[in-house]
């Protein structure tokens, strides 16, 4: 139950693999179709950021939870250039479709808990949790 799925992210094919594993885990925890799709979409966005901006990294997906129920914890890690202005990266224009932005505000809306830590020249770690509803 508590083991971590690790998906190395190097190419665009890995994006698909990561999100499919995330969806499978969500469904196995009893998440609805909609919530599983939200998890898969969020993973896809984070994995894409790795491929686009850091070239390589890793996505970790694991089941977690407490007495209120299960949740999925996803950690996206890279050793890329880092984000210099996190505030700006999280700023929300209502639509991300037109821009080439990081899409982080969108991801934040898809999940329940969201955390980002970035160090210039060292890389970025994004964590999110999605609870079963």
């Amino acid at each position: 139950m508590n083991h971590t799925i690790r998906v190395p992210i190097n190419t665009d094919k890995d994006i698909v693999a990561a999100r499919q594993k995330g969806r499978a885990l969500a469904l196995s925890l009893g998440f609805s179709e909609i919530d599983s799709t939200l998890v898969a979409t969020a993973i896809s966005e984070l994995a894409r950021n790795i491929v686009t901006y850091a070239k390589r990294g890793e996505i970790r997906i694991q089941a977690d939870g407490n007495s209120k129920g299960p949740c999925i914890l996803v950690i996206a890690k890279d050793k890329g250039a880092g984000i210099s202005n996190i505030k700006l990266a999280l700023q929300d224009g209502f639509s991300t479709s037109g821009s080439l932005g990081l899409g982080l505000p969108g991801v934040k809306r898809l999940v329940d808990e969201f955390e980002i830590v970035s160090h210039i020249g060292k890389g970025t770690v994004v964590k999110f949790k999605k609870w079963k509803t």
Binding site: I34, T41, D92, G93, S95, V107, R109
Partner: peptide, 16 residues
């Protein structure tokens, strides 16, 4: 699909 559409609008994508 309905769930895909739901995730899209949450993400802020509308295919305008």
């Amino acid at each position: 699909q309905p769930e895909v559409a739901f995730a899209m609008v949450q993400l802020g994508i509308t295919l305008e």
